[in-house]
Write a protein that binds this DNA or RNA. Sequence first.
DNA 1: ATATATTTAGAACGAATGTTCCAATTAGGT
DNA 2: ACCTAATTGGAACATTCGTTCTAAATATAT
Lengths: 191, 191
Amino acid sequence: MARNKEFDPTEKLEKARDLFWEKGYHATSMQDLVSQMQVNRGSMYDTYGDKHQLFIESLQNYAKETYAEYKQAATGEKSPFKAIELIVKKAIQRSFEEEKVCMIVKSSFEMAPLDNDVKEILKQLSNALISIFGDLIGKAQQAKEISAEKNARQSAQFIVGSFAGLWQMQALYNDRTMVEQMAKNILDSLK
Amino acid sequence: MARNKEFDPTEKLEKARDLFWEKGYHATSMQDLVSQMQVNRGSMYDTYGDKHQLFIESLQNYAKETYAEYKQAATGEKSPFKAIELIVKKAIQRSFEEEKVCMIVKSSFEMAPLDNDVKEILKQLSNALISIFGDLIGKAQQAKEISAEKNARQSAQFIVGSFAGLWQMQALYNDRTMVEQMAKNILDSLK
DNA sequence: ATATATTTAGAACGAATGTTCCAATTAGGT
DNA sequence: ACCTAATTGGAACATTCGTTCTAAATATAT
């Protein structure tokens, strides 16, 4: 039939994702993307569609990779509460290593008020994380590690929401001790 | 000497602020601002400087007005802990009335990674809020309303950070009950 | 009343925006 | 080896971007 692509679409998508992740949607130009991805303009539009679609795919890719890391951090841990702790630790570690704050949270503030399609995706992705924590909290309650009085899903929402606080503090102060202290407070308040 | 301005600079600044507040910095164009403020382009540059300076003044104006409202919500309240509760309540009420999420938090995610000047201002403004809560927490400890074990400033940082969680949830789900439940969790964890 | 400094309206600027198009290239199926 | 369909590089598109400029209008101080 015809030629094959010279580039690996998912590898290049990750480059786009990293740029959107760092600068957000509006501050990232197609020129920025072309330069960073090292892919021709035409090929970009052929492969990913327009900027908006590319952003959405970047977001999905981010969530997929991030949640996989979170789950991976918890596997093998028998104590559900410790599993939660491990995920939070991993999230913080990752965030400081990448020197970037969670793309879903950033996008929630930048895009949710302006773009309904993106907002729905962000809701769905956040729901997925809430479910992960909800399950763990339920199990922790069964294991009597935390009080069974509290509603598991509410606690999960609290945890996921609290992440935003961690990231804001990181974004402003970039002080890991401070962020870890906040995380400790959050985890303590679960019990 | 010469003519007077036909418009009230602070009144028009508030219009700019509302637009930046809603859409963020990058998604707001000068054309948007000219239309919304009903001020001539040239007059805008004469009065406020460029877009960047106008944004900074908008941010300062936002903080001034918001913090005044917060303090006002707490005045007359003898119990320091209840004062904290009142501020949180006011913050939530205001946020749902305006149908917009805190401009400082939004800007922290959009601008802090890209703009050091804005980041420093955001830090300073956040510090001011942390101090307000730090004072109240200190007083609440003296009044034995909350445990004196915890470091007051750390708890204040936790509160201020937790606001970001409230706003993310509002931005995504726009569910007031959910946000109020989260706020309750935050306040409970203070004790 | 006149001179003067400032504001006003809106045209105009070059640069950057997202997107499309086209000719040249290239690899796969027959 | 040759046709064919897709990819490639890069020019080109119309808009929009933030900003500046000019000329007319206007209010103040003398």
